[in-house]
């Protein structure tokens, strides 16, 4: 069985801890990080807005792409250390949610963390990327809270009963 842990900045320790707690000892663990094109794209756009500064080698977006690669590698290193057992590190880049679903093909379990508004229980605790991955995952999914889950009192009262 293959267990895929999708790690993102800020919330990855919870996913690693979930793998430690729930993945079978014999399972092959894959630590996955996906770099999206959006943040370097912001820098590309800002540079394009500087009309006439024609030196493409000064475009900060390219530098961001390179930096993104090293920071992803560092995140996976830290996660592997926290996991404390043999694992495979996988770095992908592209549309984040689609890359995750593609990576989960044929897996026995996909572990991911909520990325939305985590002040209350409910559908908004999933951001668009995690929502897409949960909805489209071709395998069982383990969805964890990055920090202790909020209390049941955060659920709004049930609507009045209609006959």
């Amino acid at each position: 069985m293959r267990v895929i842990a999708w790690l993102t900045e800020g919330t990855w320790p919870a996913c690693v801890d979930a793998v430690r707690a729930h993945a079978p000892r014999a399972a092959e663990v894959v630590l996955l990080h996906v770099s999206g094109p959006d943040v370097p794209g912001l820098a590309h756009g800002a540079f394009a807005g500087l009309l006439g500064r024609g030196h493409p080698e000064r475009d900060p977006g390219d530098l961001l792409e390179a930096l993104g690669g090293t920071s992803a590698a560092r995140l996976l290193d830290a996660a592997a250390e926290r996991l404390g057992r043999p694992c495979v590190r996988e770095e992908r880049s592209g549309r984040v949610e689609r890359e995750v679903v593609a990576a989960a093909e044929g897996a026995g379990l996909l572990v991911l963390a909520r990325d939305g508004d985590r002040s209350r229980l409910g559908p908004r605790s999933l951001g668009p990327a995690v929502r897409f991955a949960v909805d489209h995952a071709p395998c069982p999914v383990l969805l964890v809270w990055p920090e202790p889950a909020p209390g049941l009192a955060t659920i709004p009262p049930a609507p009045p009963h209609r006959p």
Partner: peptide, 23 residues
């Protein structure tokens, strides 16, 4: 844009913070 943005991105990534709002 050219000089500070890459530094901000690297700082966010190094300290485990999501870079998007900062970029």
């Amino acid at each position: 844009i050219v000089l500070l943005t890459p530094v901000v991105f690297a700082t966010a990534a190094r300290t485990g913070v999501r870079p998007k709002p900062h970029v």
